[in-house]
Design a protein around this nucleic acid. Structure first.
Lengths: 335, 335
DNA sequence: CTTCGCTAGTACTACGTATAACGTCGTTGA
DNA sequence: TCAACGACGTTATACGTAGTACTAGCGAAG
C-alpha cells in the first residue's frame, strides 16, 4: 500500500538515520566534502525506496523562484506551436527547468488568469505575439519576457526571437518573378500584427526592386474559409492575377479551393503560395509551395534566451533563417 | 517603480492597518460575520492598490493541495486535443481550478518528468490514452486519474470519458451500406490502442449484421503518408474496394491522395471516410465524410469527473454521443 | 453587578524545503 | 600538551499562506 501522505525529506531522513538537512544536501548534490560517500549513498537509497519526490511548492517557497516559465501560445489549432513547444521542451529538459504551457483561448472563451491557471510560481514568460489577449495580463507582472515572432526592441520584452519573415517573403516573390509572374495578389491575413506587416512590406519591396507592378491586396480572416473568400474576390478582378501570395498555409489552402471552384487549376492557371510550412501544406493537393519556418528552433532559442536573462546575461534579439520549399502549387503563368 | 519583491499578504495587512490573518480571511471570502464590511473593503482596496497576488507555492504548501490537474495529451500536432483542452479549460475556469497541460513528446524527444515539468503541486490527472509514454510515470503516483478515450473499468483510472466510438463506426458502416457499397477496406491505424480496436470491432459487427462481406484490412501508421501507402495497397487488390473506411481523418486525407494518384476519383470511383472531424476534414478536397467527436465536451466532462473525485463522489464512466457528418467524399459505388 | 454571548478582530502555528551557522569528533603540527 | 583544523553532520530558521484558538470589548440578560 502506498502511504496516504507522500513521503517528505524528513521521512527519508528517518529511514536513512540522518537529519533532514543531510537529505537535502545529498539530493541537491551539495554534499561533496560535507557528507561521507557511504552516507550519501544510503540517503539516495532511502529516497528511492520511499519513492520520495521533493514537494515543489515547498521548494519554490523556500527558494523564491521556480526555474519555471510560462509558454504563451495562441489557441492550439494547428501544428506550428506544437513544434515550437517541442523545441522549448527539449531545451527545458536539458537545462532542468519547468515549462507551463498556456494556450490563450482567443476566440474560444474568456481568458482565465494565466497565473492562476498555471498554478505554479513563474519566473519568466515565453510568449508568441499571436496570443495578444493573454499578454496584457502578463505585461505588468514584472517577469522577464521573451517574445517570439514580434517586433524587436519593443519593451517590455527583454528579447525577441524571430524567423526571418522578410527574407521568406522575398524568396516567395523572387520564386514567382522567376517563373514569369507579374500579376500577383497578396492574400493578407486580416490581423493587426507586426509579423504580417513585415510580409506585406517585404513583398512590396521585392516586387518594386524587380520593376514589377505592385501586388494587389485582399484581406482575409485567418481561416480556410477566409482564404477561400478572399481568393474568390481576388480572382474576380480583371486582369486576373496569375499568382496568389498567401500570408499563411491555411489561407493558401482556402485559396486553392477558390481557384478550383472557379473551374481553374492550381498551378496551371493560378499559382498559390503559402507560409509557415504547416502539416497542412503537404496534406492538400497540390502540395503547397511555402516558406518553412524553424518552429522547433524558435522555441529552443526562446528558452535559451530566457535562461540567459536568468543568468544575468543580455540575450539580444535573434533572427533565424527560413527556407523556401517549392512544391506543386506554383508554376509558370499560362500563356 | 514596481517593488523588487512582490507584495505579500503581510504587506497588504500593513497597508490596510490590519493583521495578516484578516487579509487572508477577507481575500478568501471567509470573513462574513468576522470582519466588518468597512474593514473588508479597505483590505480589498489595499490589495488592489499593491497589485497583490497570493503566492501559489505558499498556498499549495499550506493547503496540501492545489486544485490543479495535469492534462496529458499526445504531442500537439493537430487540432483535436486543442479542442479537448479548450473544453477542460472552460470548466476549470468556472470551477476555479488550475490546469497544467503536458503534451507528451512521443516520438519527438525523451519525455521529461511530467511532475518536474509541471512545476506545481498536482492533485489529479486527466489523460488521453494516446499519451502512453507519460502514463507509466504517472500511474504510480497515487493521484486520481481520469482517462479520456480509454477502456472503461480498467485500473488505475478512477473514471473514463469516451466518445461513442463504436456507434460512430456503425454509422459509417450503415452510411456506406446504404449507398450500396459491399467491397470495403478498413484502413486501420497501426496503433495498439483500445480505441482503434473498438473501431475494427464495430465495423465488422455492423457489416455482419447486414449480411455484407467482411472488410479487408490494411494497417497504416497514423500519418498522411501512412494512409496514402495503405490505401495504395488496398486499391491494388482485385476486386478493387469501392470504399475505404479510415480510422482517422489524417489517414483519410492520405487515402484520397492515393485514389487520385491511381487516376481514380473520390467519390465517383472510390468513397473514403474519415474519423474525428478534424479541421483537416473540411480543408482537403473533397471534404471528408467523417464522424464528429465532441472534443470540447470530452475535456469538459473529464474535468468534471476529476472534480467529482475530489469531492468524494464516484463519477462513473461516461460515454458521449457522436455524429456522422456526410460530406463530399462518399457516394454510391460505380456501376 | 456578574455572566453570558456576540462581534470584531489578532496571535500563532504548521506546511516541506534549503541553507547559514554551529557543534563534535579525531588528527596533526609545534 | 594543546591549539588548530578538517571532515562530517546537526540545529535552527525563514519562505508566505490558511486557519485554529484565542482575546478584548460591549450590550443585554439574569
Amino acid at each position: 500500500m502506498a502511504q496516504a501522505r507522500p513521503p517528505t525529506s524528513r521521512d527519508v531522513a528517518e529511514a536513512a538515520g540522518v537529519s533532514q538537512a543531510t537529505v537535502s544536501l545529498v539530493l541537491r548534490d551539495r554534499w561533496h566534502g560535507r557528507v561521507s560517500p557511504a552516507r550519501a549513498e544510503s540517503v539516495r537509497a532511502a529516497a528511492r525506496e520511499l519513492g520520495y519526490r521533493p514537494n515543489l511548492a515547498a521548494r519554490s517557497l523556500r527558494l523564491g523562484r521556480a526555474r519555471t516559465a510560462l509558454v504563451v501560445v495562441p489557441a492550439l489549432t494547428g501544428d506550428f506551436f506544437g513544434r515550437v513547444y517541442a523545441g522549448a521542451a527539449r531545451v527545458a529538459a536539458e537545462r532542468d527547468l519547468g515549462l507551463v504551457l498556456y494556450p490563450s483561448p482567443e476566440g474560444i472563451g474568456p481568458a482565465p488568469d494565466p497565473f492562476a491557471s498555471a498554478s505554479a510560481t513563474l519566473d519568466g514568460v515565453l510568449a508568441s505575439s499571436m496570443a495578444a489577449e493573454a499578454l496584457a495580463a502578463l505585461s505588468d507582472a514584472g517577469l522577464p519576457l521573451v517574445m517570439l515572432d514580434s517586433e524587436p526592441g519593443r519593451a517590455p520584452a527583454a528579447a525577441t526571437v524571430n524567423p526571418d519573415i522578410a527574407a521568406g517573403m522575398r524568396l516567395v516573390a523572387a520564386h514567382l518573378l522567376g517563373l514569369g509572374h507579374r500579376a500577383i495578389t497578396h492574400v493578407a491575413a486580416d490581423v493587426d500584427s507586426w509579423t504580417f506587416a513585415v510580409r506585406a512590406g517585404a513583398l512590396a519591396e521585392r516586387l518594386a526592386a524587380a520593376g514589377a507592378p505592385p501586388a494587389r491586396t485582399e484581406r482575409a480572416p485567418l481561416t480556410v474559409r477566409g482564404g477561400l473568400l478572399a481568393a474568390e474576390r481576388a480572382l474576380a478582378a480583371r486582369p486576373r492575377p496569375t499568382a496568389l501570395v498567401c500570408d499563411d498555409d491555411v489561407l493558401a489552402a482556402g485559396a486553392c479551393k477558390a481557384v478550383r471552384r472557379l473551374g481553374l487549376r492550381v498551378p496551371e492557371d493560378v499559382s498559390v503560395t503559402g507560409f509557415d510550412d504547416l502539416a497542412l501544406a503537404t496534406t492538400v493537393e497540390p502540395e503547397l509551395t511555402t516558406v518553412s519556418l524553424p518552429a522547433e528552433e524558435l522555441g529552443a532559442a526562446g528558452t535559451r534566451a530566457l535562461l540567459a536573462v536568468w543568468e544575468g546575461r543580455e540575450p539580444g534579439d535573434a533572427v533565424l533563417p527560413v527556407r523556401l520549399v517549392p512544391r506543386g502549387s506554383t508554376a509558370a503563368p499560362p500563356g
